[in-house]
Design a protein around this nucleic acid. Structure first.
Lengths: 194, 194
DNA sequence: ATTAAATCAAACAAAATGTTCATTTATGAA
DNA sequence: TTCATAAATGAACATTTTGTTTGATTTAAT
C-alpha cells in the first residue's frame, strides 16, 4: 500500500480548508456556504481550493469519510463480550471527543450524510454481530437486515437528539437509554428472552 | 379564516411546477436540479416560476409541508384504542398511497427534510400519546421526549428502508415489525409489562 | 365581449462556479 | 546552505445559475 506522498505544505493547506468549512458549518447551513466563503475563511487562493477538491461536495465527503472511518474501525476491533454486543458507549464517547465536528455535520446537509453514510456503516457492523447470534435457517419475526437498520437508525436518531440538546447526559447514560429502548425489541424479534 | 382566493389557473400552474420537481427528483439529486430544469419540465416561463415561488428551496418546502400536514392531521384524529397507541399501519398506508411522492422526497435533500420536519411532527404526536400513559411525577428509565424522539426516528428509519427496498411488505407487515422492534423497549422504559 | 389576472419570451444584472496561467514561495534532497 | 521543483498564489476569464424586469399575449370569469 504505497503511502500517498504528500508534502506537509499540502497537508496544512488541506487542513486549513477543511477547518474553514467546519467552522462555517457551525454558523450557517451547508447549502448557503459558497466556495468564496470557504477560501476567504481559509485565506487560500481560489485555484488552490480547486487544486485539492472538485468542489464543495467533494470537500464535505472527504471530511466526513475521514471521521467515520476511524469510528467504524474502532467499533470493529472492539468486539465486546456477549452481554454488550450492542454497546454504544464507545460510540458516544468517540463522538463526545469530536463533538464540534459532529455537531457541524449534524447541521445543514450533514444530516443527510450522517443518516445515509452513517447508517450504511453502522448497519453493516450490527448485521455482522446479529448474524453471530442466530442459527441459520432460524425463523425470525423481523429479518436481520431490518433489525440491523433499526439498530443503526435508532442510534443515529438518539445521537442527533443528544447533539441537538447540547449533550445533557454522559455517554454511559446515553448508552443505557439506548439499551433500554432498543434491546428488548431486538431480543424479542430474535425470539430470545432478554 | 378567509379562504385564500386562488384561480384554478394558478392552482394548475403551481401543480405543474410541483409535479415537475417531483418527477425530476426521481431522476437526480435535489441539489443538482436547476430552476431551468424545473421550468423546462413544467413547460412554464421563468417569470411564472418566480411569481409563485421564491426559489427551489421554497418550492420543496411547500411540497413537503402540504404532504406532511395531511398526514399529521390524519394521525391526530385517529386516536386508536389503548392497545394501538403506537400503531403505524395507517402511516404506512398513507405513504403507500403517495409512494411516488415520498420516494422522491426520500432521495436527495429530501432525506434531510424528512428526518427533520417529519421527526418534529411525529415526535409531537407520540409525545402527546405517551403523556397520556404515565402518571405525572412517575420516575422513568428514559425521559418522555427521548422516547418520543425514538418512536418517531425508528418509524422514519423503517420507512426509509421500506421505500429504498421498493416496499417488499404490506403496510400491515411493516407495522408489525415496527411494533415488534419498538414496543417492548418503550413499555420497559415506562416501567410497564407489555 | 370586456377586462383583469396570469403567463410568456427575451433580455438583463448579479452571483457563483470552474479554469487558466504567469509568478512567487516553501520544501526537502543533495 | 543551496537549489530544483512541487505547491500555492492571485488575477483574469469563461460559464452557469440565479433572480428581475419588461411589455406583449393569452386565458378565464363575469
Amino acid at each position: 500500500m504505497a503511502e500517498k506522498q504528500v508534502s506537509r505544505r499540502t497537508k496544512r493547506t488541506r487542513k486549513l480548508i477543511e477547518d474553514a468549512l467546519m467552522s462555517l458549518m457551525l454558523e450557517k447551513r451547508y447549502d448557503k456556504i459558497t466556495v468564496q466563503d470557504i477560501i476567504d475563511r481559509a485565506d487560500v487562493g481560489r485555484s488552490t481550493f480547486y487544486a485539492h477538491f472538485d468542489g464543495k461536495e467533494d470537500l464535505l465527503t472527504s471530511d466526513f469519510e475521514q471521521l467515520f472511518s476511524s469510528l467504524s474501525q474502532q467499533m470493529d476491533t472492539d468486539q465486546g463480550d456477549n452481554n454488550e454486543v450492542f454497546s454504544t458507549t464507545d460510540l458516544f464517547k468517540h463522538i463526545q471527543a469530536h463533538h464540534g465536528l459532529y455537531k457541524a455535520l449534524v447541521w445543514g446537509r450533514g444530516v443527510a450524510l450522517i443518516f445515509k453514510q452513517g447508517n450504511i456503516i453502522l448497519s453493516r457492523i450490527f448485521e455482522r454481530r446479529l448474524i453471530r447470534l442466530v442459527d441459520d435457517g432460524e425463523e425470525l419475526k423481523v429479518p436481520i437486515p431490518v433489525l440491523a437498520n433499526h439498530l443503526a437508525g435508532s442510534f443515529l436518531t438518539l445521537l442527533k437528539w443528544w447533539l441537538d440538546n447540547n449533550m445533557p447526559h454522559t455517554p454511559e447514560e446515553m448508552d443505557e437509554m439506548y439499551q433500554n429502548m432498543v434491546l428488548p425489541g431486538v431480543w424479542g424479534s430474535l425470539g430470545r428472552e432478554s
